[in-house]
Every structure is written in structure tokens, then in C-alpha cells.
Amino acid sequence: MPETILVVAEQHAGKLNRVSWETVAGAQAIAAEMGWQVEAALAGNGIAAAAAELAGKKVGKVYAVESPALADYTPDGFAAALKQFITDKKPHLVLMPHTYQVRDFAPKLATSLGRCLIPDCIGYKKDGNRLLFTRQMFQGKFAADVSFAGEPPYFATFQNGAFRGDKAEAGSAPAPVETITAKVDAAAIRTKPHEWFKEAKQAVDLTQAEIIVSVGRGIKEQKNIDLAKQLADSLGGELAASRPICDSGWLPMDRQVGSSGQTVAPKLYLALGISGAIQRIVGMKGSRTIIAVNKDAEAPIFEIADYGVVGNLFDVVPALIEEVKKAKS
């Protein structure tokens, strides 16, 4: 029997989180290389449609782990249900997307089984018979190949964008879906979650912007934001910022791009003084062209930039504003 990779997909209110396809694609690639097989599981209540959607991909089987106690996500409920399921099915490797929800319950789940997970991986490597997981360290300045020691099941999560969701292979026929009734004691769920909500209506929709000028810590002071604003205006683009800038209150939260802000994919993303730490990059990896200006030649932003300028943004940006105005007149 080949080893089994179990993909734990994610859903909310019965709707599959698209990032699950990336994990399926990653699992399929690993399975092909190692000669293993892929199965998928989904936890929740009233998730038959999402499970059926998952079964359209090339996986051996889909398990819908259901219980009324799983209707709303709680770490207690999801960890308990998946612990039973994993103890029962004994997968070799459990893969999940590195979402906020997974970050909330996966370390608990792994710990409850005496295991430690490798989180936020960006890829994998086959090393003989061993499987190594690659992850970023020190805010993306280094990468590390990480191995598992001890007994399976092994747990790893993949960063958004680590694999392409549209590369998840479809099956020739739908995979069988098995519904598993999880024994979750509702009284043992200690936290009480309330409805999701958004803060006051967002004024800017960065997801629709074709040109984004984004500032990071390199802008140094609040009064310098205006320089970036002038550049954005001259280009007819929107101004955005990395998390620390919005945390400092220099720009409102709706201008934040990153894993916790908005995910953008403009034609042009101009990064000014943004180092490119992982969290800042997740939200803009899909940009068509990235131009980065940073004084630090080692800044991780240059790993993903199409054009890079190592230099002082306070010299480069005024010159650029002038040149753009000239070009437009």
C-alpha cells in the first residue's frame, strides 16, 4: 500500500476556500514524485456540495467529516474531529493551506497527537527517500529545508501561492465521497464564536486598481507619505502601504496590502522602501510587473521584483515624478 497524503481542505458556510486547490496541487505533485496517493477531507456541517466539488479533482477519496457541533468553526471542535479522523485513517502526511483558520487549529491538532507541524512552506524537495519542506526564515532573507523526525503522521502547511490552484489535476471520474459522523461533544467546545463582520465600509478598493504605489518602513516619517502620494497621483494610481505603516496610523487600514489586508493584482506595483518580508509579499505576488526601490540590496523584495533600484527613494521618487509628468504632458 502506498503512503497516503491527506489534504485537509477549508470551507466557510459550506463554500470551499479556493486556496484549498493549491494544497491539492501540492499534494498531487508530491504524490507523483514519491509514489504516494492523495485523499482529501473537509470538516464542517452541511458540506456535501463542497465535498463533491473537491471530489472533482484527481484524489482517491474525499471524506466529509460532519457534525452539527462543527457548523461554526472553533479550534476545539475542529481539532477534536480531525484528531479522531486522523487517528483512525493513519495518513502518512497531512497537508493544509496556511490560512488564518489553519494557523488557529493545526498546531493544536498536531500537538494533541504529539506531533509538531512544519508551517508556511513554499515548496518541497525529494532527497532520496526523504521528503524535505522548504520554508522562508528571517522574513524571507533565507530559506530552509526542513525534515521530519520521529513517527508519522507528519503535518505541514503551505503558504498562499506556493502552488498554483489552477494546476490541481481533475479526475477522470468524480472520487467517492464518504461522510464520516464526527463525535464532537458540543459541551466540550469552550469558545463561543460570533458572526464574521467587516469594519466600517472600505473607502478604497485596491483590488480594482491597475497601478499601485506602495510604501513600507523605508518612508521613515508620516510627512514623507505625501511624496508617494504625488507619485501615485502622477501615474493615476492608488496609494497603498505595508502593515507597519497602517499600524502606525500613517495611512488608514483599507490601504494595507498583505496577508491580513487586501490581495491585489495590478498591472504595476511600485514598492517604495518595502523590504518584502513574507507577510508583505503574500498580498501582491500576483502583480503583473513589480518595480522595487530599496536602499538595501539584500532586501527580499528584489527576489520577486521585475525591475529593481538599489538606492535612496527620497532621491529617486522626486526625479521619477518629474519624468512621469513630462511623459504625460
Binding site: R115, Q136, K141, A143, A144, D145, V146, F148
Partner: peptide
């Protein structure tokens, strides 16, 4: 014992 082991650190 550590269950996850950093085998190698390198510049990406």
C-alpha cells in the same frame, strides 16, 4: 527530541 529539523539554511 526535535520533531522538525532544519537541514540547511541558505540564501533563496
Amino acid at each position: 527530541g526535535n520533531q522538525i529539523k532544519i537541514e540547511k539554511l541558505y540564501v533563496p
